[in-house]
Design a binder for these strands. Sequence first.
DNA 1: ATGTCACCTGGTAGGTGA
Length: 255
Amino acid sequence: MKFATWNVNSLSIRLPQVLEWLAANPVDALVLQETKLTDDKFPTADFGAAGWQSQWFGQKTYNGVALITREPASAVVKNIPGFADEQARVIAGTVAGVRVIGGYFPNGQAPDSDKFVYKMAWLDALRAWLATELAQHERLVLMGDFNIAPEDRDVYDPVAWAGQIHCTPEERAQFQQLLQLGLVDAFRLFEQAPKSWSWWDYRNLAFRKNQGLRIDHILVSEALRGRVQACTIDKQPRRNERPSDHTPVVVELAD
DNA sequence: ATGTCACCTGGTAGGTGA
């Protein structure tokens, strides 16, 4: 069983690349972030023609998430229940007996900004809801663009980024609190190449210089830990023409 | 290197967000 996450930075622009990637990587579920599409514009017919089911939840210009699956997802939830939010950031569904939650975590902009306050409130609400989801679903995967680099080894220049957005102690503490719910960072279950990133800025030739961050993550519940066979970052789509600035992360679980 | 990309409004560019 395989699950993946990809921030596509506009599904209108990236749809051909997503379909191409799915054809080469037939995962059981793929969660997308930053679709930037209102619900009436979601290309469910294009996914359907390629043999994929889709669930989606979007808005104009910003944010927007989707859950692409081979088999239909059940018990679909959009955004965090009980947390009033105008921004479309969460989609969840049950796939092959696994609760799959896709999230586009707030960016936070800067540690002294209103957007950072929102990011912290959103993370608090996510954690409270996840506790109830974990109580109901022993097998759970939380994946997406977390906009948090959990440790210095997830940052190409940790000195320059110290205290900056994605790297603040507050964000890293939130990440640890997610783990304390009974989740594990699948990528770190394995020995990985140093300087493994999931995002590279479009500017400064960052990809060519491999100056990136690991901010896209797949967390699995303790019940799934023993089933994780691999977790990899697929850099290939970042080499495409007109790439997203993020690249997919994939986890493989034993059936 | 405030160096790119995507999308909006409202227009033949400029602002916002990432």
